[in-house]
Write a protein that binds this DNA or RNA. Structure first.
Lengths: 237, 237
DNA sequence: CGTGCCATTTTGTGATCACAAAATTTGCAG
DNA sequence: CTGCAAATTTTGTGATCACAAAATGGCACG
């Protein structure tokens, strides 16, 4: 069977106007594809991912996939088992509690650092994103919700220009996102509440403590309550 | 010149009692070698590292080096520039301040989590390490000092059994270690003071707040004061 | 019908190759 | 001597290959 170029690659010889000069373009596309898949929950925790499988699915050789998988394993988004097999890590209560703690330590801090770099245009963008999030919650589109929730948070964080804290938070999101997707698949999205509007108000008023509280509350509401409950149930039965 | 198997590799065909079953042994050795080199300051910030260079230096093919470099780049220990070149990132005041902040947020927390897992044997080990550190400070052996200081901190942190916070802190150390090495090379090690003895005492007495303070103080003393002063000078002239 | 064993297939790993882009050196003209 | 351009070397990238270990499936035997 001829490898059917499925997703984000076209003919490998004819890219003239695309990104011809950029070194490592293929790797970048593979990285973006897998990363996006993890963040929106298209990879199931515990499921093994194979180099050749992803390579043929993306229409590229195994080489760039190998490198990207190593990258993601280094960020603890994927797990390399002792036999070399790569899989999406299973969530455990301990891991979950640690991710929650780390998020609560780092994200409010980075949000505050971004506060005075956020323009009126940014506020408008955040409002648009939050409206779309509300629509996804009622429509029950978990994948779109996750993508937009990520966009909301990282639109704030990215404004900080951070080079250290931001990658750490990136790693955290990659770790809990696949698990949260399974949670939404089980309990739906209607129970979701967010403190995004409080966050937007705090940004408008340049109120740092309020922004910290909103981010903390959003993390606790969206992740803490929901996830802890699920983990209790799954470990119990 | 024939590639002289320099460091940690022997004949590739005769490993029977070593690690024959372990998958990815070569990559693991390359990873350990480069990581150790970064943590002890054998790589200079701003200096480019080449795949083929490291490969021939370690007596392996470029393949495992490529993957390890991608891993370390994902941890922000190395920087992949737009032309594909890989180099040790230069330290900037902004980066330094962020690393310091992140360390102060994460490391006291992880130390506290490890507190009740630290045995009397661990305390003895820490005491031995700290004695060796004192010897290195007076003898001026910066490389050994850095290796031991890392060992001291991570012997505590590792006891926590953390799977999330520990890798984040790992990434932070890889980011500031090469820079700190250049600092010690400039101002020497005699000015170094550490709060390791206070930390050991807090562990003995299972005093969590005291341990947090000791770790925070150690970070501030060893990194904050020294590094900020250096960065001010270098950016000023 | 269950269980252990063997053949087959899948998969990761390390090595090598070909190519293009980038850096470096060389050479020449002003 | 200086500055620019062409040639050479270096370097990263993607692809393919060979091999070993692991997983899978089927088959025989109890």
């Amino acid at each position: 069977m001829a490898a059917r170029y499925s997703v984000l690659t076209n003919s490998p010889a004819g890219n003239e106007a695309d990104t011809p000069t950029t070194r490592g373009a293929t790797r970048g596309q593979v990285d973006a594809a897998i990363r996006s898949g993890l963040l929106t929950g298209r990879f199931i925790p515990g499921k093994a991912v194979t180099i050749r499988g992803l390579a043929s699915e993306l229409g590229v050789s195994p080489m760039p996939v190998r490198e990207v998988l190593q990258r993601l394993a280094a960020e603890n988004a994927l797990e390399v088992k002792s036999n070399g097999r790569v899989q999406v890590p299973d969530m455990t209560p301990e891991r979950f509690e640690e991710v929650l703690k780390a998020r609560l330590l780092l994200e409010p801090e980075l949000a505050e650092r971004a506060l005075f770099s956020l323009s009126k245009q940014d506020i408008k963008t955040l409002t648009v994103i939050d409206d779309e999030i509300d629509a996804c919650i009622v429509s029950g589109d978990a994948e779109a919700y996750m993508q937009l929730n990520h966009a909301f948070h990282f639109h704030i964080y990215a404004a900080s220009g951070s080079q250290v804290l931001l990658p750490l938070i990136d790693s955290l999101w990659l770790q809990f996102a696949p698990f949260m997707r399974t949670v939404y698949g089980r309990v739906g999205t209607v129970n979701l509440v967010d403190q995004h509007k409080e966050a937007i108000r705090a940004i408008e008023q340049k109120d740092a403590p309020a922004l910290r509280d909103a981010i903390s509350g959003d993390i606790t509401d969206g992740m803490g309550l929901l996830g802890k409950e699920i983990l209790k149930k799954t470990t119990g039965g």
